[in-house]
Write a protein that binds this DNA or RNA. Structure first.
Length: 500
RNA sequence: GGCGACGUGGCCAAGUGGCAAGGCAGGGGCCUGCAAAGCCCUUAUCCCCGGUUCGAAUCCGGGCGUCGCCUCCA
């Protein structure tokens, strides 16, 4: 089975066939660095991070290019507001962007060019366009002539004349056509500028994506991604520039992510109703936010709220508990007669189904919601097996459960939803446990591992004597410092989760 | 006004022709000294009206509603 993806250009799902077998060249529009990125930006970058991770997991070699636009009107405006150089604004928010991506678990691009480092090739592309009659110069500005490119509108499904009748386009008498867009802008005093054949100026928006993708990937490359609000005019203009300049098709598959909304309205910088990614990540763990977002298909709108985040916290805890309980069988007795053969077969089937479902869902236009559902189904099967057979595990059962555990971790890992390492359990217990042991058991050492053993022993004795008050004092005391005790047929299961 | 998307249980959300995934919340039960975790059971005239089909959430037409793009936007 091959991967199918929805191509905005054709408005259909298509079989994905990279231009070169086994290799994928993809480009995703990056940020203009004039502010901290908001959570809607975060969703788009997450979408393409997951697509990239999945392609790699499926065996493709992926070259992933993402620009950083560090020269633009918005940056200049911001610089004027903050009364500092535009380059400084760009630098500050570039660093902030990289930090946010790292915190959000987004893998770094293979290449991440800065627009200001690509001025020469941008001038080159503008020259090509002027030479072949697709662009014209007016007073130091250079405009692309949309009428010179008959296919203009093919991505967004628009007709030039329809657009004009919308009457929401700037009328600039210097342009030959109101829809013509700037390739190069003459610099006003105090603005960043570079020397060009048309005078001092700076590149227009759209240009950097055309130039960088061609330089880093060659055309036509495989996948071009971005938010759906970029379809028009940004991506339409990229196509026009690039195809007019090169005479080649630009990108083969266009993927667009749906908008993130707040109270059923699109969040955007201009509406001012946005939440910054870094503020959300300061309040909720990265895996929770990723899980929440990936439970909706990437092309659908996603309504975001703190209620939904709280739900996702619970859902993620279900995953954590699952993995923790499966890992716990490592240390559990496994010398029983084992599960019934039918139960064993059912678990093995559940494992196979989970993997197969994950692949088929993800192959179908990256249906992360369906893929996650499959992981939860596997979780249920494994939990059921464990709870039915907990007191009578055989070594073979233990292996099956550990296989389930590693599959869950692997599949969620493809989505970048991390589950803490197994080795974290039991280590780094808080020092408070020593003090608690001193109070409740008279423990006199300073080793927290020994302290908790003393506490568990004391509780065990208390329970045997039906001294529930003493037993509960241990459990409640530990709970206060973040350690939970769960009784199982094979003894207490201890779990420490910091900040829990 | 032009173009486009969407409308699935209390909430969120998969599912594009054949018994309606999953998460959250609610109710009941099992397990437990009590818990916790977990398991089991339980909640859907798939917005409305027509049509095509042996069969429609899924395809077609109409209606109502919501959202997006057309201007900077992920």
């Amino acid at each position: 089975m091959s991967i199918r993806l929805y191509n905005t250009l054709t408005r259909r799902k298509e079989d994905f066939e990279p231009r070169e077998p086994g290799k994928v060249a993809m480009y995703v529009c990056g940020p203009t660095v004039y502010n901290h990125i908001h959570i809607g930006n975060g969703r788009t970058f997450l979408t393409f991070d997951v697509i990239r991770r999945y392609l790699i997991w499926r065996g493709f070699e992926v070259r992933f290019v993402q620009n950083i636009t560090d020269v633009d009107d918005k940056i200049i405006n911001r610089a004027n507001e903050e009364e500092r150089p535009a380059a400084e604004v760009a630098e500050v928010y570039t660093a902030a962007f990289r930090k946010a991506m790292e915190d959000f678990g987004i893998e770094r691009p293979t290449v991440q060019p800065m627009a200001t480092a690509m001025i020469e090739p941008m001038i080159g592309m503008v020259n090509r366009l002027i030479e072949n009659g697709h662009a014209y110069v007016v007073d130091g500005d250079v405009y692309f002539s949309v009428r010179s490119f008959p296919e203009y509108g093919k991505l967004s499904g628009r007709d030039i004349d329809d657009l004009l009748s919308g009457a929401r386009v700037d009328v600039d008498s210097r342009k030959q056509d109101p829809l013509d867009f700037a390739l190069w802008k003459a610099a006003k005093p105090g603005e960043p500028h570079w020397t060009s054949p048309w005078g001092e100026g700076r590149p227009g928006w759209h240009l950097e994506c055309s130039v960088m993708s061609e330089a880093e990937l060659g055309v036509p490359f495989d996948i071009h991604g971005g938010g759906s609000d970029l379809v028009f005019p940004h991506h339409e203009n990229e196509i026009a520039q690039s195809e007019a300049a090169t005479g080649q098709p630009f990108a083969r598959y266009w993927l667009h992510g749906g908008m993130l909304q707040i109270n059923a309205e699109k969040m955007s910088k201009s509406l001012g109703n946005f939440m910054l990614l870094r503020d959300v990540l300061a309040q909720y763990p990265t895996p929770v936010v990723r899980l929440l977002m990936l439970q909706t298909h990437y092309r659908s709108p996603l309504d975001f709220s703190s209620d939904r985040l709280d739900e996702a916290v619970t859902a993620y805890e279900r995953i954590l508990n699952l993995v923790r309980n499966l890992r716990w069988v490592r240390t559990a007795e496994a010398s029983g007669d084992g599960a019934l053969e039918s139960a064993r077969t059912a678990l093995a089937a559940a494992l196979e189904e989970a993997r197969a479902k994950f692949v088929s869902e993800m192959d179908d236009d990256f249906n992360t919601a369906g893929a996650i559902a499959g992981v939860f189904e596997l979780g249920r099967a494994a939990n059921a097996f464990l709870s039915e057979n907990q007191s009578d595990l055989a070594a073979v059962d233990r292996e099956s459960l550990l296989e389930a555990e590693s599959l869950v971790v692997e599949l969620l890992g493809v989505l970048g939803i991390d589950v803490p390492d197994a080795d974290d359990d039991g280590e780094e217990l808080p020092p408070d446990v020593v003090e608690l042991a001193r109070q409740l058991t008279g423990y006199e050492g300073s080793d927290s591992a020994a302290a908790i053993r003393a506490l568990l022993a004391a509780r065990s004795v208390a329970r045997t004597e039906k001294n529930w008050a003493a037993a509960d004092a241990v459990r409640d005391g530990l709970l206060l410092i973040g350690i939970t005790i769960e009784d199982t047929p094979q003894g207490p299961r201890v779990n420490y989760r910091p900040r829990g």
